[in-house]
Design a binder for these strands. Structure first.
Lengths: 187, 187
DNA sequence: CATAATATGGAATGCGGAATCCGGATTCCG
DNA sequence: CGGAATCCGGATTCCGCATTCCATATTATG
């Protein structure tokens, strides 16, 4: 059951290649979304397809590895913004941060749009983001800068819409956020 | 240029089959979006794949035929709503109508989300919808029920987001519309 | 160094699904 | 009716991609 101790250290070239693959995949996914071909990833990484598959046994595994990593970044950065004094402003910054990330990463905008819909409680990224939103909303409501009917479900939809607007280049997403936030103000 | 007159009337069974195909495709697309297989469409239509392809030489042709038809319906209905007295209410009804249609038709929600992004001026559906919105906005602004900064671009984004919210079941889309409309009110 | 342990590349394979082809069935027209 | 014009069905071809395999190359270890 336990790992065989008599194992050699992983070869250094293997490790180097793993990094290359991750790097290439991250770039390609950000550039054109997750419908990039595995062979393309390998080519850009300067690696054979076989190697790519040794590192990530499945296309999905590769995508997941990267999306997870990216998501963690978003969440961490967002959590930092929570600590600002003005919670309403915090919410604004939070959304702008998400927008900033998504507009630089097509792949993420695809993932986020879908993730905000998945009703599975297992969707950690969404849970984390909404947890942050929950705190901000509550604090803002206490100050009367956000309406009382507002819930995380609202933020959920707003983010889902935001992802769509960005992904389809449907307009100025900053303006979209402005409108949405105005919509959350107390009546 | 003109049709060869010496041509027989199109066979009645051919016409019947065409209708069946359209009907089946409409139902399937509404049910599960446009990623349905051609063979499935044929099966449901009670028709061979060959026949399906004679009517619509390409998967895309089939999709287009149906989407176009559906879009025309949306536009016509929406235009009717424009004639209401209160333009702000008209805008609300307009969005609700779009929501109603999209939530009953997965395929359309896919199409609309993309269509609102396409920057091609050729996108007739978008143009038509935004034309309706333009009139409502203008009238509402005159009455002071909608903010002055508001443009059709805003409505464009809102619809794009709406489609995404519905498509991903990200929450209660009626509430989404409420929030968005509140966001368009004068400050 | 020698050699076992690992890693590599990329041709070959498998597969899902769109689109084509054509022998046979139907329908129209005089 | 008869037979020419049309249409049908669905097996088959094609194609794009993910994934696998393995002969060869590289690295760690003693």
């Amino acid at each position: 059951m336990s790992t065989p101790q008599a194992r050699r250290k992983t070869r250094t070239d293997a490790e180097r290649n793993r990094d290359r693959v991750l790097e290439a995949a991250r770039a390609l996914f950000a550039e054109s979304g997750y419908d990039v071909q595995m062979s393309e990833v390998a080519r850009v990484a300067g690696v054979g397809i076989g190697t790519l598959y040794r590192k990530f046994p499945t296309r999905e595994a590769l995508i997941e590895a990267i999306a997870e990593h990216r998501a963690a970044d978003i969440i961490a950065a967002a959590r930092r913004l929570t600590e600002a004094d003005d919670p309403a402003q915090g919410l604004a910054r939070f959304l702008h941060h998400v927008g900033e990330v998504l507009s630089d990463d097509r792949g993420m905008s695809e993932v986020v749009e879908k993730a905000m819909g998945s009703s599975e409680p297992r969707e950690e990224t969404r849970e984390a983001l909404l947890a942050i939103a929950a705190e901000l909303i509550e604090r803002a409501q206490a100050r009367g800068t956000v309406g009382h009917g507002v819930t995380t479900a609202d933020v959920n939809m707003i983010i889902c819409g935001l992802a769509a607007v960005i992904r389809n280049a449907a307009g100025d997403w900053r303006r979209y956020i402005e409108v949405a936030l105005d919509g959350l103000r107390p009546r």
